[in-house]
Write a protein that binds this DNA or RNA. Structure first.
Lengths: 158, 158
DNA sequence: CTAAGTGCAAAGGCTTTGCATTTCT
DNA sequence: AGAAATGCAAAGCCTTTGCACTTAG
């Protein structure tokens, strides 16, 4: 944990960036919530516990900086909010998402299923893959079961 | 072409929606630009040729309606603008994207490479797949060649 | 000391909404 | 006729930016 912070610190410093209290607090929040996909607003609220004076703009600026340094990955699930994930740049962190359109649950597949496809992309398209995103939209197990139990209406509510 | 418009018309009517000039014009624009990923603004500008009085709000409302009816697919490439694609709901239209991070080119793979993975998702996660999205980010063939020709600088421009 | 970073508030995009008016069925 | 749809402008989000002040190195 501390060593990972240390590493990110050095990454910042080696690029000539300063190590401010706000930046460290932000990185800590990201580390402590590695499993989640936090929005800037989420990070802001969490980071205020550690650095109450921090402003939302600084959080945005820090997340942008970390994205440039490839420390975090900026993601977009189509709900209009950017979400940020710490990158495990050791192994390809590349997880895939299962997004339930009924209840909104977001599940993850932690394995990387795409290696073979990346090879195909490279060979057939001359395209060098740096990153990828695979999302499935559908009905999650829980909703599937719920629906089976109580025969659902034909029409969607909206 | 006309038959596809007819089909969408009927789809609208069968759900009790009215067939306005604006909606038809919007659908035509989408049909005529099927290969592109138009933003609402793009659609708006194109549709103004056919229906000059139309307002941007109507375009948004129409695109939202068509999304609900699964006539179009709303997409998000992370640049903060929603883009809309007509869905070929006959065959799984599901194309994948190759996004070049250097020049911004957006190429497509028109085949569906994910059938086997969908089966796995269903079996291993009890998740019913309705749709999916697969994007690769990286360097396109053209940029790769350009880079090889003129040994590129070590640092990115920004 | 001085350039980089911060906080605040204002400004920017894209998208949605309220409301009076128009239009389809 | 009556409900649905439209256009316009205003309002709503999330995000970025300008600027004076603070701080890390």
């Amino acid at each position: 944990m501390e060593d990972r912070i240390e590493k990110i610190k050095q990454q910042l410093q080696s690029q000539g960036y300063k190590l401010t209290l706000q930046r460290e607090a932000t990185v800590r929040v990201l580390l402590e919530n590695e499993e989640d996909h936090l929005s800037a607003e989420d990070v802001f609220m969490l980071v205020k516990d550690k650095a109450p004076e921090i402003g939302l703009a600084t959080v945005y600026r820090t997340l942008e900086l970390l994205t440039e340094l490839h420390v975090v990955e900026k993601m977009n699930f189509g709900d209009g909010v950017a979400r940020y994930d710490l990158r495990n740049d050791s192994a390809h962190h590349h997880h895939h998402h299962l997004i339930c359109v009924q209840c909104g649950a977001l599940d993850e597949i932690m394995e990387d299923w795409l290696e073979p496809l990346e090879i195909r992309v490279t060979e057939e398209f001359g395209f060098t893959v740096l990153d990828h995103r695979l999302d499935f939209q559908g009905i999650c197990r829980r909703c599937n079961e719920k629906n089976k139990a109580q025969q659902p209406p034909q029409e969607e509510s909206k």
